[in-house]
Simulated assay, not measured.
Amino acid sequence: MTETVKANAATAAASSGVNGADIGLLVARVGFGGLLAVHGSQKLFGWFNGYGLDATAQGFQGMGYHPGKSFATLAGLSEITGGLLLVLGLLTPLAAAIALGTMINAVNVGWSGGFAMWELPAVYALAAVAFAFAGPGRLALDRGRPWQRQGLIWGAGAVVLGVVAALITLALK
């Protein structure tokens, strides 16, 4: 009897197509993407006890990003856009590239301050790379769409795009 119950449960899980990895990717995507979007909204709008655009622009100026307001706006928009796309599981390789490029710049800024200053952006960058390769999972808006892309080639392309965007930003600052 127990074997029949197990077999029926396995069949039900297989027919829905959703597995533990899909749930894990959903939780990680929503958590990481949501936090990234909140961070961007702090920069742009001062939401969630953030500084807002003017103060963030001054901070960017002090970090060597000139003009500070343009780079602060770019960073905030990148964090909001990349974060929300990840939350939704939409255009996931592009979302991962946006997040990665932004976090490479954050790691660069914190590098001279020691490990504690670049540790969190590095974790975010690693998460972005993981999503670039793994994709969003089955519980995502990308699922079954003509634009759905994931895997080795798309992950590598997203990483290259994120790194190139970060290097261009660093060169222009």
Results as ranks from 00 to 15, higher is better:
2 T>M: 07
4 T>K: 09
7 A>G: 07
7 A>W: 12
9 A>F: 15
13 A>E: 11
16 S>W: 14
18 V>C: 03
20 G>S: 13
22 D>W: 06
26 L>R: 01
28 A>M: 14
32 F>Y: 12
33 G>E: 13
34 G>D: 00
36 L>G: 07
40 G>M: 15
42 Q>G: 09
42 Q>R: 13
56 T>M: 10
62 G>I: 00
64 G>H: 12
66 H>S: 15
70 S>C: 04
71 F>N: 06
72 A>R: 07
73 T>M: 12
73 T>Y: 05
80 I>P: 15
82 G>S: 02
84 L>G: 01
86 L>E: 02
87 V>H: 05
91 L>D: 01
95 A>F: 04
96 A>C: 08
98 I>K: 04
98 I>W: 00
99 A>L: 15
100 L>R: 05
102 T>M: 11
103 M>K: 01
109 V>P: 08
109 V>G: 04
117 M>L: 13
119 E>S: 07
121 P>H: 13
122 A>T: 15
123 V>A: 14
133 F>A: 02
134 A>W: 14
135 G>C: 11
135 G>D: 13
135 G>S: 11
136 P>Q: 09
137 G>P: 13
137 G>K: 09
138 R>E: 05
139 L>N: 08
141 L>E: 06
143 R>F: 14
144 G>Q: 14
145 R>M: 15
146 P>L: 09
148 Q>R: 09
150 Q>I: 11
153 I>W: 08
157 G>K: 02
160 V>K: 00
161 L>Y: 01
162 G>Y: 01
166 A>E: 07
169 T>K: 10
170 L>S: 04
